[in-house]
Structure formats: C-alpha cells, structure tokens
Amino acid sequence: MNLFRIDASILPGNSASAEIADAVQAEWAAAHPGATVQRRHLGTRPLPADAWALATTAGFTPAPERTDEQLQALALAEELAGELDRADAVLLAVPLYNYGVSQHFKAWADLVISGAGATTPVLKAKPTVLVSTKGGGYQPGAPREGWDHSTPYLRRVLVDMWQAELTVIERELTKAATTPAMESLREEAARIHANALDAARDAGRTLAASATRV
C-alpha cells in the first residue's frame, strides 16, 4: 500500500494544515503498518517556477529541437504524474493563502497536467483526502463569505478533472488564537479545531479501508 502526501504550507514548524493531515496519516499508518508513505513538501521545497512553461512549450517544439531545460521540465512533469499513478491513496494539505490556492500547489497541479495529459483522470478510483485550512472565516454570513477562492478550484481539479473520490476537511479561524482582533472568535475557533481533528481521524480510517478495496 502506498499513501502519497502533499504539504503546501510555508511554515512547516507551525502548520495548521500539517497537523490535520498528520491525524489522517496516523490512522492510515495504524491500519497499514509498514506501508509506504511518499511525501512532497511543496511549501519548503517548491518546484521550479518556470518548469510548467518549459514543459508546455516543449509540447509545441519538435523533439530534436527541445532544449535541455525543456527536457528536464518534461521529465519532472512525468515524475510528478507517476507519483500519483503509483499511489493507492492521496492526502493533500493545502492552506488558503491570500484568498487563493497556494502558488506551490498550483505549480504542482499544472505540472501533473502536463505530465499526464489534460484529460487524464489521474486520481480515478483513488480515495483522496484534502485538508483545507484558513486563517479567517468564510462560511455563509461571515464578512468574507465567498472570498475562499482555493477550495472551489481544488474541488474542480481533484474531482471534475482528476475524478478523485474526495473527502474535504476544512478548518477555519486558525489565526484566532494569536490575533487580538479575533479574540471573540477563539471559543468558536477551538470548537472548529476539535471538529477538524475528529473529522481527520474518521477520514484516515475511511481512507485506509477504501484504499484496501481499490
């Protein structure tokens, strides 16, 4: 069994998304002791910013005329797509940054599309858990309702394009504990935190069981 995990936080020592993903992974490991867990830390070891452009332009360049940089980008794209292809289950920890998807995750997703093909459902029949964490509140009625432009994009790519069997765990108000202006929200933030950890444990057990059946 092979679990493939992505982390996109730029703060590995204090990552809300990693904490939730750790809880998912712990349940996976308990069900599959000794199983392989392959990880990519996109936030701390980002992919080359120009790799997607190089891989894409290589597709319009005759093979004999491709530059070394284009060939390296194509090889990277194929490597990333292959990591998903070999996975039995997938775990993605992706924070909301500046109201949108992490640039590091976007670069990874674009390269996977280049490596696998735009219409290839690379996660078809693969149980997948997405952890989405947000510093503020974006639920209906919140002042910034509708400002989360990350989670809808992620659902579009993971489910509609890649056909993942997706479970989403969302944790909001992660900045409440350290932000004076959010002091009134700390009790609610603690409740959301506890619920997200419970959901992560449930999702981890389901992920492990689903992967066994794949």
Rank of each mutant, 00 (worst) to 15 (best):
V24P: 03
H104N: 11
S114R: 13
E187Q: 12
A116R: 14
Q163K: 15
L111Y: 08
L91P: 06
S114L: 02
A63T: 15
G100T: 15
L111M: 12
S102Q: 05
T119V: 13
P152T: 04
A8Q: 03
A87R: 07
E83R: 14
T179L: 13
P46F: 06
N14H: 14
I20E: 03
S184P: 02
R155W: 00
P48G: 05
A87D: 05
L130H: 09
N14Y: 09
F4T: 09
E27M: 11
D50Y: 01
A194L: 04
L42H: 03
E78C: 02
L76V: 12
N195L: 13
V37S: 01
T56I: 03
V168E: 15
T119F: 04
D88S: 12
L185V: 01
A31Q: 14
P46Q: 02
T120W: 04
P12H: 04
M161C: 11
E172V: 06
R171T: 02
A194P: 01
R191F: 00
K106F: 00
L197Y: 00
R155Q: 14
A196P: 07
A196R: 03
G204L: 08
T179P: 02
Y99A: 09
E165F: 00
S9Q: 06
A55P: 08
A209W: 00
G115H: 08
G34H: 11
N98H: 13
V131P: 11
H149E: 06
L3N: 00
A87G: 08
D50K: 04
G59Y: 10
T61R: 06
P143Y: 09
H41Y: 01
S15K: 08
L207A: 02
E65I: 00
L84C: 06
R45G: 01
E165I: 00
T61K: 06
E183L: 07
N195Y: 00
V122E: 12
R66Q: 13
I169A: 06
V157Y: 05
A203M: 07
T119L: 10
D148Q: 06
W147A: 15
A63M: 12
A87I: 08
A81D: 05
L54S: 13
D7K: 01
A58N: 03
A63Q: 14
E183T: 14
T133Y: 08
S150G: 09
I10V: 15
A208S: 09
G43I: 09
A189D: 07
I6H: 01
L91N: 06
E78R: 15
W28A: 05
R144K: 08
T36N: 10
A73C: 07
A93Y: 10
A176F: 07
G135M: 09
L111E: 02
P121M: 11
H149A: 14
Q70I: 08
M182I: 03
R40I: 05
E188M: 10
A73G: 11
R5G: 02
T56H: 13
R201E: 12
G135N: 07
A194H: 08
P64L: 10
R66F: 05
V168W: 10
A194Y: 01
D85I: 03
A63D: 14
V131M: 10
V37H: 00
A208P: 09
D22S: 12
A53I: 06
A16F: 10
Y138I: 08
V157Q: 10
T179Y: 04
L42M: 05
E19H: 03
G13S: 10
L154A: 10
L130T: 12
L96E: 11
L54Q: 15
A23C: 02
A190C: 02
